[in-house]
């Protein structure tokens, strides 16, 4: 029982649930709730993105594109065409999944820098389309979005959103953990390490890369839809290349191939710029510095590095005991 609690899965989920449940005690006002909601939404994107980058080893520099498509899809369907927000979100998600599938098929054949460039290109195309198709998107000015509502119940206010996003984040983490600990998840990690090694035991590497690309796009799209309804407004800024870089930095900083790392990375790097408002104009420099510092000092990212430290401490102390006995 205790060992189950100590497992990353049960123990980690429980810890995350406790943090989400107790955090409001420390959230003094609406402004802090607002940051917490943004953290949660970014964390959902990063959990999905880490499945792709950290576990399957496939880079994407275009995930802000999927986030933006989710946001704009919901905004356009719900606000321009008056669809119920839930229906708008589900339709948008399906469309983004289909698009990720179509785009992913050719570009996931590429490796390393080539894949990075192709996903970058994809993100830029999405950005260009959104800024130029102003009949639907409002162009550079953006578009106002109606509040999220289900059957007459309107989701409004930071506090309600906090709980909704908190529960969804827990769900996202649970789904990601489940996937990683399944044969499919092992296949993803395997092809990350050796594609040919994975293929010769029967794993269709291309199919798995495509699958995880689509899943990560869906996570980003859903978070985008929610972000649009939450803030009541979308602008192309969230679709831009720089946002893709922010997302990747969160994943790398928190820890590749660590689901909880993705959450920690999102929390740290969403909060940091808010706290350092003096640096407003230098936000991207902060991200750049964090990325460089991580690569140099913590190449595994924060959470895996800490886990390792803890592990060696524990081994060392049990060795001590064995030694003194």
């Amino acid at each position: 029982m205790l060992s189950r609690l100590a497992s990353p899965r049960t123990g980690g989920l429980l810890a995350l649930a406790i943090v989400i449940a107790l955090l409001p005690l420390a959230l003094a006002n609406k402004y802090f709730y607002d940051i917490a909601v943004l953290v949660g939404l970014n964390a959902i994107v990063c959990v999905g993105l880490n499945l792709l980058i950290g576990y399957a080893g496939q880079i994407s520099l275009g995930h802000a594109g999927f986030f933006g498509l989710g946001a704009y899809g919901s905004a356009i369907l719900a606000s321009r065409y008056g669809w119920p927000p839930l229906a708008a979100m589900l339709t948008t998600t399906l469309a983004v999944a289909a698009l990720a599938y179509l785009v992913g098929r050719p570009i996931l054949r590429l490796k390393g820098h080539y894949l990075a460039m192709a996903t970058l290109g994809m993100g830029i195309i999405v950005y260009m389309v959104i800024t130029t198709e102003d009949r639907f998107t409002g162009g550079p000015d953006g578009i106002a979005v109606v509040p999220f509502s289900i059957g007459g119940f309107v989701l409004q206010g930071e506090r309600i959103w906090y709980w909704v996003v908190g529960v969804l984040l827990l769900a996202a983490v649970w789904l990601a953990l489940n996937l990683i600990e399944s044969p499919t998840g092992r296949a993803l990690r395997a092809l990350h390490s050796s594609e040919v090694g994975a293929e010769v035991v029967g794993i269709n590497a291309a199919e798995h890369k495509l699958l995880v690309f689509v899943i990560s796009a869906v996570f980003a799209s859903v978070a985008g839809s929610l972000a649009a309804h939450y803030s009541g407004f979308v602008t192309p800024g969230k679709v831009a290349f720089l946002h893709s870089i922010e997302l990747v930095t969160m994943v790398v900083f928190g820890g590749m191939a660590s689901i909880f790392g993705a959450v920690v990375g999102a929390a740290a790097l969403t909060t940091l710029p808010q706290l350092l408002t003096v640096f407003e104009d230098y936000e991207m420099m902060v991200f750049g510095a964090v990325m460089m510092g991580t690569m140099i000092f913590l190449p595994r990212g924060v959470v895996p590095s800490m886990a390792r430290l803890f592990q060696t401490r524990r081994n060392a102390s049990s060795d001590d005991r064995a030694g003194s006995a």
């Binding site: 489940n178 399944s182 044969p183 499919t184 092992r186 029967g202 794993i203 699958l211």
Partner: peptide, 13 residues
């Protein structure tokens, strides 16, 4: 993998 692979929904849930 070939004996164990399962549907995506089964894995996710």
């Amino acid at each position: 993998y070939l004996q164990e692979r399962s549907g995506l929904a089964r894995a996710l849930l």
